[in-house]
Nucleic acid binder design. Structure first.
Lengths: 177, 177
DNA sequence: CCAGACATGTAAATTGTTACATGATTGT
DNA sequence: ACAATCATGTAACAATTTACATGTCTGG
């Protein structure tokens, strides 16, 4: 379970409110560990109780905004967790189940619908990753931190490209059989 | 949520008991939609209530064994579901979170441990898939059903190979920076 | 007769999703 | 004033994991 550590990582990059965290998640770590704002608020409460972050109310700012910051104990916990070895989370892919179902049901069962839908999604995600690549990781020397972040992005980039290719391959197979 | 449909697919391939289903899952559909026997028993109960499968007690067999079989309504439901388009389940990968954490924590945080562990796992899974490929999909003409099943296996094969490659790439990067 | 595989479940805890609810601030 | 965005939460539900619990049959 990595949500708390994903939050610690993001807060180390830049202390901010739960709301900001939720927004930043959507465009960075959230690609590899998605979380809704409801989950994030709840988890931030736990992080605070565990003594890994502190929350400071900012009366000057909007509403009842709180800014969270990682304390040394939180940094130590993240350090500890990074050194752990875990089995990868089991992958679940409904598309593969659909293809297996089509295999027993016979032709014309309609998997092509989902294949096309997913092809579009993967291309969309790929385009998004390429935008980020162009904006954040091109045309200049990268720091160590940035190089590692780029490595992670490349893994996403590669995954989406492969999945799009697989959809194309499967669609082509269906069209010719 | 695809578990019921994965079960229907597997039961269409061959009617059997919950126990057998759980075992077969571990070596086929379960690669793409894992499920424990506890989940399977519970879900089989629901499938029966929904009128998609029938259970027949087999007094001759071991213990209180029940054999489940898909009825036409169940086949129709599977057919319907195959035609649906869904967004892919969001992927969650703790390794990517660890790499992002190492990016902010700085060198020596110990991600290499998890990278090596996962590299071993991916190679192991790859070897398993290759065994299946050799045993079930080589050296003879494949039926349409088998060709589709092979397509699904190839997607797993490719995924594991890519993930192993990524681990190697990341380990190499870490060793040289 | 006993170990090991067969066989089926219940219960609790965790994690994640969806729906609902509220209120503050800023720009027009 | 009103809409949009900022901001923080609660509650109910669904799915998964882990731990527990029980009993049967087969081979040695």
């Amino acid at each position: 379970m990595s949500l708390p550590h994903a939050l610690l990582t993001s807060l180390l990059e830049k202390p901010c409110s739960g709301f900001d965290l939720a927004r930043r998640f959507d465009r960075s770590i959230g690609f590899f560990w998605p979380a809704s704002h409801q989950q994030i608020y709840k988890e931030l409460g736990k992080l605070q109780i565990a003594g890994w972050v502190t929350a400071s109310a900012t009366p000057g700012a909007r509403g009842r905004k709180k800014v969270y910051q990682v304390v040394p104990a939180g940094r130590a916990e993240l350090q500890r967790w990074v050194g752990c070895a875990e089995d990868p989370a089991p992958l679940r892919d409904a598309l593969m189940v659909r293809l297996r179902a089509e295999a027993v049901l016979g032709p014309g069962s309609g998997v092509a619908t989902d294949l096309q839908h997913r092809l579009a999604r993967h291309r969309q995600q790929l385009a998004l990753y390429r935008d980020i690549e162009r904006r954040d990781f091109s045309d200049r020397a990268l720091s160590r931190t940035e190089q590692l972040q780029y490595l992670v992005l490349q893994s996403g980039l590669d995954l989406e490209a492969r999945q799009a290719e697989f959809c194309e391959k499967a669609l082509h197979w269906l069209a010719t059989h």
